[in-house]
């Protein structure tokens, strides 16, 4: 019997799913090797039975479950718990699921503040907040804060080959290894050492490079003074190649989350700057260093100062 797969997306943008579809023709092999039993983006299985008479939320049993997105409201939580119950191996797919991702940036505000801002922004004709919306939690959680997770696959989105390799390995019951290096360790730019560090600047002009030369002939962006989060970010985005943002000659912003799963990108980056003698206070917006990893209680509303 073919192994069964469940896919769910919670507080997510669908980029993780699209990344998987970018796997190309190998996807067809996958469709052949497994039986997908629940996947709202691609198939019509419903939560409460196909005739929708309001049966309780239920999902089919599966060998492998993939969940993208974090947990922001009660229904996400119910779906996640049902996924955990029904799936033998649960994969947290993407940085939202593993570390909160961009949506966890809102953890700097209370849910009430956020609702107020959203429902009064712009040209809204009257100030009301919706009443029948699913109950929002106090903040955005990564899924491992709520249920046990068997495999964490960060990346915003994770690389298609990596998603594919992990699913294949699980289907064939093979061992697999996730990348453990930082983005810098996979980056080919030239590093000249501490003396060359320029003070930090905002990304308002392009990096200095020769357009006819490959990335391996460009000086490290951090050394050029452009804040690059390569040192404090898990690598793997470029596969065996140059990290993706660097291919576009743009600094890393940390989308694979911390190098160590429990790490703190803000603290690590500040520490990296300080130990290289760079004035960390010149950074305009330090909290943005946690823009992908604000779950696990790292981003909180500011304390009220008297």
């Amino acid at each position: 019997m073919k192994p069964k797969l469940n896919f769910e997306w919670l507080h997510a943008c669908s980029g993780c799913e699209i990344s998987m579809l970018n796997w190309g023709e190998q996807l067809l092999d996958l469709f052949d090797q497994v039986e997908i039993v629940h996947f709202p983006l691609l198939m019509d299985h419903k939560y409460g039975g196909q005739l929708g008479e309001g049966a309780p939320l239920s999902l089919p049993e599966a060998d492998i479950g993939l969940v993208s997105g974090g947990v922001a409201h009660q229904e996400h939580l119910q779906v996640l718990q049902e996924m955990r119950k029904q799936c033998r191996t649960l994969i947290a797919l993407g940085t939202c699921a593993t570390h909160g991702g961009i949506p966890a940036m809102r953890n700097q505000w209370s849910t009430a503040d956020t609702l107020h801002t959203v429902f009064t922004a712009g040209t809204v004709d009257k100030e009301i907040s919706p009443s029948s919306a699913p109950a929002f939690l106090d903040r955005v959680y990564s899924i491992d804060e709520k249920v046990r997770v068997d495999v964490s696959l960060p990346g915003c989105p994770p690389q298609p080959q990596l998603i594919g390799a992990v699913i294949k390995a699980l289907v064939n019951k093979d061992a697999f290894q996730l990348p453990q290096k930082s983005v810098c360790e996979t980056c080919p730019t030239i590093r000249e050492g501490k003396k060359k560090m320029a003070p930090v600047q905002r990304f308002l002009h392009n990096a200095d490079y020769d357009r006819d030369q490959p990335v391996s002939e460009m000086q490290c962006l951090l050394e050029q003074g452009l804040v690059c989060m390569g040192p404090v970010t898990a690598g793997g985005c470029g596969g065996k190649d140059t990290p993706l943002c660097l291919q576009a000659r743009v600094p890393c912003r940390g989308c694979y989350g911390p190098v160590q799963p429990g790490g703190n990108q803000l603290l690590d980056m500040m520490n990296a700057l300080a130990s290289n003698g760079i004035d960390h206070r010149a950074l305009v917006d330090r909290k943005s260093l946690l823009r992908f990893s604000g779950a696990h209680g790292l981003l909180k509303p500011a304390r009220k100062k008297n």
């Binding site: 507080h11 922001a72 949506p103 940036m105 809102r106 700097q108 505000w109 503040d113 956020t114 609702l115 801002t117 959203v118 922004a121 712009g122 919306a133 929002f136 905002r202 990304f203 308002l204 912003r253 305009v284 917006d285 909290k287 943005s288």
Partner: peptide
């Protein structure tokens, strides 16, 4: 609802 209107506040615009 994900609150982008809220959490872009305070960020440097070029980001």
């Amino acid at each position: 609802l994900r609150g982008f209107e809220q959490f872009v506040i305070g960020r440097p615009a070029e980001e």
